[in-house]
Design a protein around this nucleic acid. Structure first.
Lengths: 165, 165
DNA sequence: GACGTGTATCTCACCGCTAAGGCATCCCGT
DNA sequence: ACGGGATGCCTTAGCGGTGAGATACACGTC
């Protein structure tokens, strides 16, 4: 009963017994899991004509609550991508009529991004499907194990500076 | 003491109390952690003139042991990317003289990829730095917590079909 | 020994992200 | 009032990945 990473650790132990490769037990698995999960989520997004990047922006704006308005800078921090990536995401979403950009009246540097009615309708349509997919992905863990995992991941995130407040 | 994902869960609870967004507690954190860790590892790779893709191929070949020879298909399964991605990775590595491709003598479809002496020297030079970075990334967890986390991630990976043997 | 199915690799068009830099605007100390 | 640093957003070149498809070869079956 081993996974791919156990195999990798065995190989390193044989080839480079002088090195301590134990952190790969966590980091290697994080990477593989992230790829597997993303691939799974991607199919749900595609079924609604979306990709991960577009979904992320729409979801971030939706959960911010009325009036569904954020700035590119806020979206950038939330998504952990560069400003250029946000500009391009917004270009695509705006071209599809899912968001609109407008200049701020109080700060000439700032742009308001607002979810359109179609954007809000789309994300509300996708969300239940998306959550069903996420549930399915985690179906292999009991609720208790899921709670433990979420707690450990939060600990690690906080130690890396992913704090709020 | 909350992280970004706790904030997200609060927002959804306010905006869509009808939905069970609990799986985001795991999947959202997985995604953020993966991005943060990748960004950290990238800097170490860059310091040696590498990127994640190149490092991954070189490391896979190195840990396979003498004669440091694998096929594109094996690299593809290990890296979980498409065949096109492997072709391009090998093109780049071959152009730098870090691997060589040669036709199989026994199967006309198969290509042998072999680590050159420079390739082996490079990966052995990068590895200690890379492992030091991985250690640093996990420094916020005790050994016991790291073990728990690795175990939970393996459980989830196995439930998603990432088994060997 | 011809055929059909499956496997291994490569090709190519397209897509999203990064990194670096540019420009406009705001804020603050003097 | 003003100069300098910070901030917000956009631009662009280049890179690595996907997805669909092409090509070549292997192998079992009739």
């Amino acid at each position: 009963m081993t996974d791919h990473v156990d195999r990798v650790l065995e190989q390193w132990a044989r080839e480079r017994p002088d090195l301590d490769v134990s952190p790969m037990g966590v980091i290697g698995r994080l990477g593989r899991l992230s790829r597997l999960v993303d691939a799974e989520l991607r199919r749900t997004f595609a079924a609604h004509g979306l990709d991960h990047a577009s979904f992320d922006v729409l979801a971030t704006m939706r959960r911010s609550g009325p009036p569904y308005r954020l700035n590119p800078a806020e979206l950038m921090r939330s998504a952990m991508v560069t400003s250029g990536a946000i500009t391009q995401r917004l270009d695509r979403l705006e071209a599809r009529g899912l968001v609109v950009r407008s200049p701020s009246e109080t700060d000439g540097r700032v742009v308001h991004v607002t979810l359109t009615e179609e954007g809000r309708a789309l994300i509300d349509r996708v969300l239940p499907d998306h959550l069903a997919t996420e549930h399915r992905v985690l179906a292999g863990l009991t609720d208790a194990r899921r709670g433990e995992l979420a707690g450990l991941l939060r600990e690690l995130l906080e130690s890396l500076g992913d704090r709020v407040d």
